[in-house]
């Protein structure tokens, strides 16, 4: 066994090298991909009630692909992501529903955030993050791509870039 020491050292080195060079060490595959998105219905934040009603969520008969975006006012990447989502919402609002889920947050802070970025896509309030856990979230922001039939196509953890967001929308409209 000792004779093969270079093999052992290289194996260990290879393992750690691979571990070091991973672009996103903490990335976790979602077990929901390919499965129906968990349905829920939560109270909408105040600014959206006039247009969308008291509650909103994922349920059968939406008839539209959904980008479910889990966010919080205290999350820094959410601040760069919010205007981007807003822009895409304006562009695609007839084809795709962008639905925000505000988690682990106080309602007042969430409302301030919405006002600050002028967000018109609807967001529901999930102060304790219960729906987040239903979806298996492990950080904010996180985006679930759900097709017309209500199947989860992908989960994106972390901030979305414009190209990534466009990619997901194209994928879901295909």
């Amino acid at each position: 066994m000792l004779r093969f020491w270079p093999v052992w050292v290289l194996l260990l080195g290879g393992l750690f090298y691979w571990g070091l060079q991973r672009p996103n060490k903490d990335e976790l595959q979602s077990v929901l991909v390919g499965k129906p998105a968990p349905s829920f219905s939560l109270p909408l934040l105040a600014p959206y009630r006039a247009q969308y009603g008291a509650e909103m969520g994922i349920q059968e008969g939406l008839g539209k692909p959904v980008l479910l975006n889990i966010w919080a006012s205290w999350c820094i990447p959410c601040r760069t992501e919010a205007p981007l989502l807003e822009r895409f919402h304006q562009q695609y609002k007839d084809q795709v529903l962008i639905l925000g889920v505000n988690v682990q947050d106080s309602e007042a802070e969430a409302l301030k955030f919405i006002q600050q970025y002028g967000l018109t896509f609807p967001s529901v309030y999930d102060g304790r993050g219960r729906i987040g856990i239903e979806y298996g979230y492990y950080g904010v922001p996180e985006t679930f791509v759900i097709d017309r039939k209500g199947t989860v196509l992908a989960r994106h953890a972390g901030e979305l870039s414009e190209a990534q967001l466009r990619g997901y929308i194209e994928q879901v409209l295909r």
Binding site: D26, W74, C75, P77, D105, V140, A157, G158, E159
Partner: peptide, 13 residues
């Protein structure tokens, strides 16, 4: 994402 987690999470009262 880690940076975001280091920020204040307001705990509901």
């Amino acid at each position: 994402m880690l940076l975001a987690l280091a920020l204040a999470q307001p705990s509901p009262n």
